[in-house]
Structure formats: C-alpha cells, structure tokens
C-alpha cells in the first residue's frame, strides 16, 4: 500500500503539470498536444516525482533511471515535469516551439536537459529503450528504463519488432507504459485502425501485462512496484486514461489531440484547474 500523503503529493504534482500545460505551454492561439499530454500527467508525475532515481543537477548520472516519451508529440507533459523537477528554469516553458527554443516540438536531447533521446517519429521509442536496457545490463547497472507509448502508436510495426526483441533478450529492466486513451489524431482508434485487443497481444509477445487506471496514482505506483519484482521478461503497464483529462471541453475530444484554445476555452480550462486546486488544498 502506498501512503496517502505520497498519493496526495503526486496528485498535486500532476495538477501542477496540467497548470503548466494550460497556462505556459499552450494558451490562446498556441497549438499544442493538450489531449495526450493531459492523459499521461499522473503517469509522468509518478515516475519523475516518486519512482525514478534521477538528479536534475546531474542529468547524466550513470545509474539514473531513464524515461523515454515514445509518443513524443506529448512533449508538453514531459517539459512541465522536467521544469517542475528543476532541470531548467520554468521561464523556458513559455518559449516552447519558438525559434531557437530549448523546448522543441518533440523531445530533443541535444537541447533539453533531462531528455534521454530524440523521440517523436512514432514506433521507435520502445526500440531505443530496449537498446538502453541492453546497454545498462552489459555494464551491470541496475537502473530501469521506462518508456511511455501511445495506444494509436501501437499500429506501428516497429513496436512489435521491439516487443519481440525485448522479450527475446529477457529485458526485465525495461517497463513500457501504454497511455490507452482510445483516441488518435482523427478520432476513436477502434473506428480507424483498431489496435485492440491490446493486453493479449503483449502477453503473446512474452511480456508481463498489468492493467490499471492510468489516473490513479496508487494504482500506478503499485504497478511499477510489481514490475520491479518480475524477472526474466519485460513488463508492460496498460494504463486506461482519458484524453484531455481534467480539462472539461477537451476530455474524450479528438479536436484537442493537437489544438489551440479560444479565449473562452482558456477561461474554462483555468476554471477547471482552479476547482481542482481548491479540492487539492
């Protein structure tokens, strides 16, 4: 069981991540991947602010745990978390995607402290994570590699090449998390290129599968603890989530896969977050 105060703290971190996304990273007229960033806020908060061993003052620390955002378009959630953790000043958030910015449209390790790889061409993050897990094992470093994958991204063939490879090489230091928000850019995944059934596929590919509510901090932490105990194979956490979670007009709304807010919508988003802030305090 995870202590309630830990859960409360992490929920507060997830709220702060969403506040950064709405106030600093998107705003009126600015286009951003609101939906897929908000669906993974709790997962990212749980990793950066509790589960992972890492040091913002020493991003290259040899035995750090690694986090890769294979669904790189949701960079906003990672930028918010990295700024909160202290990898770079929060002022950088407002400059996102501008010319010369530290924060690019997709994660770029050459510019942003705390980013582990260049991701965003969908389907590649799991392979990169597998290579890292292999490299860490060669060096006898007991760190873990976490990689967040979108459920739409599961249509990429390379995901399944990587899934086979990680199972073949028994990478028990690798944990994939599928942000299963059921929507892709143009609408419901099940009405487009259905990637279901998800869990049986991973199980058939030789992975330990854990299904959770991806907005339940306690469940996320328990799943990650459970993954630590699995030996001889990689673990995938299938996290059921809501795209646009906590922003009322964006929830389950494909328009906010990569959209901008009107002034009215920004006011509603702020009101949604204020209400949550009052409930949290």
């Amino acid at each position: 069981m995870v202590a309630q105060n830990v859960i409360d703290q992490l929920n507060e971190r997830a709220l702060r991540i969403r506040e950064h996304i709405v106030y600093d990273l998107i705003g009126v007229g600015k286009v951003g991947h609101l939906g897929g960033s908000c669906s993974s806020a709790e997962i990212v908060a749980a990793l950066y602010f509790h589960k992972m061993k890492h040091d913002p003052a020493n991003p290259g620390m040899r035995d750090r745990d690694r986090f890769l955002l294979s669904k790189g378009h949701a960079a906003l959630v990672q930028y918010a978390a990295l700024a909160e953790a202290g990898y770079f000043p929060k002022e950088e958030l407002k400059k996102v995607k501008s010319l010369g910015a530290m924060l690019q449209g997709h994660p770029d390790m050459t510019r942003t402290p705390g980013i582990e790889a260049n991701t965003g061409s969908l389907g590649q993050g799991l392979s990169i994570a597998g290579g890292m897990a292999l490299g860490l094992r060669i060096d006898g470093i007991a760190s873990k590699v976490y990689v967040l994958i979108g459920d739409g991204e599961l249509a990429e063939g390379q995901i399944w090449e990587a899934a086979m490879s990680a199972a073949y090489y028994k990478l028990d230091n690798l944990v994939a998390i599928v942000d299963r928000n059921n929507l892709q850019a143009t609408g419901p995944i099940c009405e487009r290129f259905d990637t279901n059934p998800v869990s049986p596929k991973w199980a058939a590919f030789g992975w330990e599968v854990i299904e959770i509510d991806g907005h339940d901090i306690g469940a996320i932490l328990s799943a990650l603890e459970q993954a630590d105990k699995i030996k001889g194979k990689p673990t995938v956490v299938i996290a059921q989530t809501v795209k646009g979670k906590c922003i009322s007009f964006a929830e389950h709304n494909p328009a906010f896969h990569n959209g901008s807010m009107t002034p009215e919508q920004l006011e509603i988003a702020k009101a949604d977050l204020l209400r949550l802030r009052r409930e949290t305090v």
């Binding site: 582990e116 790889a117 590649q124 392979s127 990169i128 994570a129 597998g130 290579g131 890292m132 897990a133 292999l134 490299g135 860490l136 060669i138 060096d139 390379q158 990587a162 490879s165």
Partner: peptide
C-alpha cells in the same frame, strides 16, 4: 533504434 539506445549508454 536499438543501436541508438546502446549508443546512449556509451556503447
């Protein structure tokens, strides 16, 4: 891509 991951751990 696996090679990229290996390179990122110093290989």
């Amino acid at each position: 891509s696996t090679a990229a991951g290996l390179a990122l751990t110093g290989k």
